[in-house]
Each structure stands twice: as C-alpha cells, then as structure tokens.
Design a protein around this nucleic acid. Structure first.
Length: 873
RNA sequence: GGAAGUUUAGCUCAGCUGGGAGAGCACUUGCCUUACAAGCAAGGGGUCAUAGGUCCGAGUCCUAUAACUUCCACCA
C-alpha cells in the first residue's frame, strides 16, 4: 500500500483527481428509467467573465447538492454552459476595436461577428477551466452556449410562438437608452444612483401677456422638446392659466398649459414642463392630451436637428448653453442644488436617456399572472421563502419588456420586412418571399434580442426543446435552481414565465437563493473598489476544498457572508485534521480488516457508531432542506470532536495492547467510521475525500459514486451511547480537577470512585487511565477510604476522589467545594421553581416534567456528597 | 413613498416547527502526550438592540421603537 504524505498538500492531488473523474465519466448524466433524475441548470457565466467569489459560492452550493444527490442514487444532470452576454461582450469588442483605431460600422456586421466568435473561442473557455479548478462535477459532455444551435432554435421558436399569440409587438414607446452603448435597455438593466444635480427654475411667458409660469427642471436641455406645461387641475394658483398658450423660450414654439393629475402641487413650483419624447411620465401626459412628441436627442446623446442652433452639441454642453441663454434672456429665476436618482447603464455606467423609440416588446401582464400563481400554489418554492415576496413584487408591478437591442452580437430578431409592400414577416425559418405580395425583396430586422431572452429559455432550450428529446422528457422540469437574490428579476422571473408559457410546466421545483460574498469589511466586492478576492489565488494557496468548505460553513440561506482568509485557514486546518486522522487509521491497519458485523463491540465503539448514526441522520435532513451550513457544521463537529478527539484517543489502548481480537474490533470500527465520515464530507470537500478514499484497503471504486451513508436504526445504540457519556464526563472531570489544583498533566494520579456504574468504568479502565492521566482506579463507598487529603468532585457517574497529598491546599479545597455547592444549590432552586409551578406541571409535556424531576434528584444527591466531603475537611 | 433583511461572546457568524445560549477566530493557563503545533487539554467572556404582549415557559411567536444594510418606486 502507498504511504500517505505526512501533511495535507492539496496541490499534490486536486488536478489529478479531477482528471480521474473526467476520464471515468463520473459526471456524465444517463437517461436511466430505473433511477430518479435530479437536474440542475448551471446559471451560465458570461463569456466575458472571470471566476469571482460570487461564482465560487454559486458553484459550490450547486456542487454540494449535486454530489449529495448523486451519492443518493439519483441520475444527476448538472448542465453547464456559458452566456453570450450580448451587451457586455459587444462592449468589450467595440473597446478593443477602438484601440485598434477602427469601429464596428467600419468593419461591417459580418466581419464584426467573425471577430466576436473568434473572441468567444479565445476567451469564452477560460471560465470553464476555472470552474473545473473548483471541483464542479457538471456534465461537460452537455456543455451549452446561449448562441449554439440548440439555443438558437429555441429562441426562434419562442419568439415565433409569442409573436403569433400577440404577446410580442413592435411599437414606439419610451425606453431607456444608453448613448454610449447606443442601444435600448430593459427597465431591469437600469441601475439607479443618487447623483448631485441642480434644479433650474425657468420662466415661460404666457402668450400675449406680461405674465409667465415658472417651471423647475433637472434637465434644461430637454426644453427643446417641450410641447406643453402641465399643472394640477385643482391647483388654484394656476387655474386661470389652464388652456392658455405659452411661448417656449429660445425655441419660440407655442405650447399649451394642460391640467393633469400627475402633477404634484407641493413639488417644485407646481408647474411642470412636458417633454413627451424624453420622459416616461411626460410621455403618458402627452398621450392623454394628444401632445406632439418631439425628439431632440440623437442616439449618441447629442442634440439633433430639432434642437435648432444647438444641433450637434453634447447633452451637457447643450444644457450649459441653454442655461446661459435663459439667464441672458432674464428667464432664469434661480438654481438650487438637488440630489436626485439618475439611471445609469448597468454595463458602462453612462447616464441613460429616456427616449421614445421604435422597439420590440413582450407583453408582460398575460405572462406574469401564471408565473405568480405557480409560486402561490407552491409549484415552485423559494428557499428561504421570503424571496417569494420579492418575486411577487416584481411581477405584480411589471411593465412590458423591451427585448430589442441595437447590437450585432446576439440572436437576431427573427422578423423580416418586405421592401415592396412593407409587410412584417415572422417565421421559424428565413422566408424567401413575401407571403402577402410575393416579393423576394426582404430584409431582416437589424436588431438583436436582449441576452435574457435566451437565458429565460435555458432550463429547456439546453435539453433540446422544442424537440421532444430523450433528455427533455427525462430531465425536465429541473429540480433546483441556485442563484443569488440579485438575479431574481433578471432571470428567475423570466425563466418562470417562459417555462410555464412554452412547456406548460414550471422550470424548477425549488429556487435556492444564496447571499452575496462580501469583503472582510462587509463591502460588496467590486471592480471599482478593487476589493475583489480572486478565488483562483485562494485555491492556489489553500486548495479548492478549503475554499469550498469556508464558503459553506457559518452561512444561512439567503444571508450575505464575509470572506476572510482566517475562515479559509480554519477550513484548511480541519481538512488537515481529517488527513491526519485518516493517516492514523491507515498506519494502524494491518491484516484483513473485518466488517463491522463480525466483531464484538465495546461501549466506546457503540458510542461512536451511535454518534455517527445521529450525524448521518441530521446531515441528510439538513442537506435535503438545503441547510448546507448546518450540515457542514454537524459533520465537522462530529469528525473533529467525537471522532478525532475522543474515539481515536479511546482506541489507542486497544490498538497498542496485546488483545488481538479487541484490536481487530477497534480497527473495524475505526475504518467504518472513517469511511462514513469521508462520505458525509465528500460533497463539501470532494478532492481530499476522494484522495483518502483511494487509500482505504477494503473499498472499491470512487467515493464520488459511492452510496451516501444511510441512517441505520440497528446501529443507533441510544441507551449505550448515553451511558458512555458518563465515561467521557468522568475523564473531563478528572482533567479539570488536575488543572484546578495545579497538578502537572504528566503526573499520574490514583482515582477513587464512588459509583454504581462499576462495570462500565471497569471495561473502559485503560482508556480512562490514559485520557485522564491516572495511575489506577479503585471503587470505594465514601471519601473516607480515599487516602490522605483527597480532593473531590461529583460527576455524572458519581463522585471522584483524588488524593493529591502535598498539592492540596485545604483552604482552597474548601472554597472550591463551597463554590460548587453553591452552583448545585442554584440548580436545585431552578428545578424547584419549575416543579412547584402548578401550571408548568399541568401544561408542559410530561417528558419535560419527568426530566426536571430526575435532574432535581441528581442534584440533591450531588449536594449530599459535597456536604459530606466538606465535613471531612 | 413601498418592501425585505440585519441587530446573539472582543471579531465573523450559526441557532430547524418556542423547553436549560453555540461554533470558528481572538484571549488566558498548561502541554512538542509516538495521526496532526495547520495540534492537545483546561478555562474566561453574552440583561440574545429596546419596550410591551401571547404563553406554564420567548434568542425563537406578535406589536411598536431605534440603528444599520439592501431592493423597488420616484416629483418634473
């Protein structure tokens, strides 16, 4: 047998283990009617992306679940993929072109796309290698890409169906426009931030009078497009102006004063300039009053021909000039500082312009309803369920989804226009002639679809929908979707309504939401702050298992967590502990190790096996509920405290003794517990558990495909385990006594014991002597038999006396005993207060009352013993 | 303006359907005990944000309050 290295060194085996899994096809999902499928769709990272801590959290969470389910015997499909990230990618390539001194327009669409695909081939695979480093056990043979053939077919089909149902339409509406990216965005892609701005007060003269109305605006440049001024119909100050005409300064246009409830008389001056083409609210007002819509800003954010002499100026330059000119005209009343929320492009952070533009939209109301119902009826459950509220909130207030983007990299809108008759044609396949006039002069819509349109189909497009493939039939709907709460509106919601609309099934049964990974100070990790921690560097330093475990411990679903080096180090230390415990077991393993069923079990054996059983049960239940943090805690607690600190130490007398049968029995138990502990740990720390598993002499195959431990009632040994706790308590009590009186740990002391559990103590004598640092144990009836000047302490099993001779300070011992007596009296009083409470006795569960009475008995007994001992001093 | 979350040991955080407050790190003390100093043993440290309420019993449920965080909406 190979020897294990003396220290845990993840670098030595992590890559090797991953290759082994790949070679043996351990991640591959099979359509197997004999098994129950378990499907998880990986949220596809952007091809522009680098692995960050958010991914590490997301991937680890999924991998833990998937490995657990795989070991439980499911046919597991964890389908990986990447997202073409239309805007983000195009943005990057455009930037690169700029560096080369060219533009996408100069290149032309075809050449641009060729470059984009090349870019995807070159960089898009990077993140996949990074996912592998983490240990992600996804089925790489099914790797998908949102622009591959399968997904493109699904996108066209989905668009076609929605279009035919009238759920997709084209229209001129106010949309969010990014002047830098030169494309429309959806409402969800707008990032608001509070910016310091100004409030300019302008006078608009009333036609044919000396009077004027003062309006206030944060965007003076939009006045070029003003087509009215609105006041509240109930505002007495302005009642006489309603219906009058104003002269728009600078421009000279005559505009009406209209009454509209939208205006808040309390805010500003109570009179609002109306620019229907550049403000969503004004747009609505414009519709209600039939106002003219004048667009004054072009796609690049400069003033267009409608802006007269300001044409060609940037929006901020135009603002400056207009304010200056208003001042010259004596129409600027005042300027106030004003902080207000401004929408920014989530990709390039440029200030967005609301602009009226002809775009494609998805009608949301008919789609939102069923998506809301599905969650209300628990067809899909959010974990934790509070996130359902966020989901409802979004869907209930949703507006139509702008899906067209003025981009080239993405799914081109499957709509053609007839050059001759102007017919709009939407087909699954590229049409060759106009169905209306027969013309062959057709051209396709220039725009692309929002990236999220294809992401929304991800749970089924990747399985071959709309074709009824074997994969689709077997693996769909999926079981759980794992993602951060920030993605609910972008993705979860859209997958829900798309899934229900297109497949008539919810796309996933559960949505597991995890929190954000923040930096050590609790700040969001971000590029601009430069506070991001690179998971790959952490893996390089500590290994992937340590990173994974550190992300999984001490976290609750949906709650944010902080990343600290200290936490990774703690995880690394734990893994090292497991490594060494395994080494200990293997070092002592000699000859054939019998299966557990064939050996005689000692009390300590039954205790550890019992503890293992309850750990198995708790861990399994926690994992099923997605309480990964609790599961990780339970296993690490068992492995470190129960197994390493107690059982391994307890096993040493048997291992080093001459009783061959006992030794074989102990080895069987050690091996059994180790093997099961490794299996419980495997979902969290897959590499090291697989590596150690390979050293176990009696097992075949890999741990990744081994059976997850099952709770076995026959091995629960509840009573025996409970009794054995007394032995542990005894050892702890002796250790504490020695420390309290300052007895050197190496000095072996004789123990005198008053107890009714003589057999239990006798059987475990050698372990107790070893662990407690004692020389011998004698059973006595009272302290009087315990030699000169004994110190004493009560414990679960009875009372311990240790004659410490010269080490004993009588006065100190008296004080110690009095203090302990005080504590015991407190306990008795506590139990009494409950037992004398009639309501408690009458209403509390019977078991609780009985337990309380038993405790009181125990403490009364302890009290008696201490009092006796005090008399002897 | 609306919504959600957080508030527990010095720090970072767990705590499931209410039944004697936990972990890791840090700290104190003592140990290189032949798996492990990335370790072992023994400890100290908490009116569970505040005020009420329900209950025999509240960190846990309810209602207010405060502070912080986040999301959404937004008044030009």
């Amino acid at each position: 047998m190979k020897e294990m290295h003396t220290t845990y060194d993840p670098k030595e085996f992590e890559d090797r283990i991953y290759e082994k899994w790949m070679e043996e096809g351990s991640f591959r999902a099979e359509v197997d009617p004999a098994k129950v499928p378990f499907t998880v769709m990986m949220p596809p990272p952007n091809i522009t992306g680098q692995l960050h801590m958010g991914h590490a959290m997301d991937e680890t969470t999924q991998d833990v679940i998937v490995r657990f389910k795989r070991m439980q015997g499911h046919s597991v499909l964890w389908l990986p993929g990447t997202d073409h990230a239309s805007l983000a990618t195009e943005h990057k390539i455009v930037e690169k072109l700029r560096e080369e001194g060219t533009t996408k327009e100069e290149l032309g669409r075809e050449e641009f796309l060729r470059r984009a695909w090349a870019w995807k081939e070159q960089y898009g695979g990077k993140i996949i290698g990074q996912l592998k480093k983490l240990g992600s056990s996804c089925d790489w043979s099914r790797l998908a890409f949102t622009m591959d053939e399968k997904c493109s077919t699904a996108v066209k089909e989905a668009f076609f169906r929605l279009y035919k149902k009238g759920l997709i339409y084209r229209g001129s509406r106010i949309i969010n426009w990014c002047p830098d990216c030169k494309t429309a965005l959806s409402d969800e892609e707008v990032a608001y931030s509070e910016d310091a701005g100004s409030f300019w007060y302008f006078n608009y003269p009333v036609k044919g009078t000396d009077e004027h109305i003062t309006i206030a605006t944060t965007r003076p440049e939009t006045m070029l497009g003003d087509t009215a001024v609105a006041v509240n119909p109930h505002d007495e100050r302005y009642a006489r102006f309603i219906g009058k005409t104003l002269i728009l300064p600078i421009v000279g246009r005559e505009i009406p004063v209209v009454a509209d409830d939208y205006v808040d008389p309390e805010f500003g001056t109570g009179a609002v300039k109306i620019t229907p083409a550049h403000d969503p609210n004004d747009f609505e007002v414009g519709l209600r009053h039939n106002l003219q819509m004048i667009r004054v800003l072009g796609d690049d954010g400069t003033v267009n021909a409608q802006g007269g002499k300001f044409e060609g100026l940037g929006r901020y330059e135009a603002r400056k000039r207009i304010v200056a000119e208003m001042q010259d005209l004596g129409l600027l009343v005042k300027v106030e500082p004003h902080a207000h929320n401004v929408g920014h492009c989530h990709r390039c952070n440029a200030v967005l312009e609301p602009i009226v533009s002809k775009q494609w939209f998805v009608k949301m109301k008919p789609l939102a309803g069923p998506a809301i119902h599905a969650v209300m009826q628990n067809k899909t459950k959010f974990v934790p369920d509070r996130f359902a509220k966020i989901y409802f909130n979004w869907l209930e207030n949703i507006r139509d989804w702008c899906i067209s983007r003025q981009l080239w990299w993405g799914h081109r809108i499957p709509v053609w226009y007839c050059d001759d008759c102007g017919e709009t044609i939407c087909e699954r396949e590229t049409p060759t002639k106009c169905p209306k006039c027969g013309s062959t002069h057709l051209h396709q819509d220039e725009d692309c679809l929002d990236t999220w349109f294809s992401s929304a189909l991800w749970p089924f497009s990747t399985l071959g929908w709309p074709n009824e493939t074997e994969d689709f039939k077997y693996f769909y709907p999926t079981d759980v979707l794992v993602t951060g709460y920030d993605i609910i509106p972008f993705w979860v919601m859209r997958m829900m309504f798309s899934g229900i609309e297109h497949t008539e099934k919810v796309p996933f049964r559960d949505v597991l939401i995890h929190g954000l990974v923040r930096d050590e100070q609790g700040r969001k990790m971000s590029k601009s702050l430069g506070n991001g921690v690179d998971p790959l560097e952490v893996i390089e330093k500590y290994g992937a298992d340590s990173l994974r475990l550190s992300l999984m411990t001490g976290v609750a679903p949906g709650n944010d967590t902080r990343f600290t080096d200290a936490k990774v180090e703690a995880s690394r230390n734990f893994i090292n502990k497991i490594w060494n415990a395994s080494r200990f077991v293997l070092m002592n393993a000699e000859g054939d190790i019998p299966p557990l069923a064939e050996v005689r079990l000692q009390p300590a054996d039954r205790w550890i096996i019992s503890r293992l059983q309850s750990t198995i049960r708790e861990v399994t239940l926690s994992l099923q509920k997605y309480d990964l943090g609790i599961a990780a805690d339970k296993i690490t607690d068992f492995a470190w405290n129960d197994f390493c600190d107690w059982y391994i130490e307890l096993s040493k007398p048997a291992l080093y003794g001459d009783d061959a049968e006992k030794k074989r029995g102990t080895l069987a138990v050690l091996m059994f517990v180790l093997e099961n502990t490794l299996k419980l740990l495997h979902p969290f720390i897959p590499f090291v558990t697989e590596e150690i598993y390979g050293y176990l002499p009696h097992v075949k195959g890999n741990i990744i495909t081994a059976d997850f431990p099952r709770y076995n009632t026959k091995l629960a040994y509840k009573k025996e385990a409970k009794a054995f706790e007394g032995v542990i308590d005894l050892v702890k009590t002796v250790r504490a006594m020695k420390v309290e009186v300052g007895c050197p740990p190496v000095k072996k002391v004789p123990l005198y014991l008053v107890t009714e559990q003589k057999r239990l103590v006798a059987v475990n004598k050698s372990s107790i002597l070893r662990l407690a640092g004692a020389s011998d144990i004698d059973f006595v009836e009272s302290g009087a038999e315990a030699g000169e000047k004994p110190v004493s302490k009560v414990c679960e099993l009875g009372q311990i006396f240790v004659p410490l001779g010269e080490l004993v300070n009588l006065e100190a011992e008296r004080k110690r005993l009095e203090k302990e007596l005080e504590r015991i009296m407190g306990e008795i009083a506590r139990a009494d207060s409950k037992l004398t409470n009639k309501n408690f006795v009458a209403k509390a569960p019977k078991k609780l009352v009985e337990d309380e009475a038993a405790k009181k008995e125990k403490y009364l007994d302890m009290k008696k013993r201490i009092e006796q001992q005090l008399k002897l001093l």
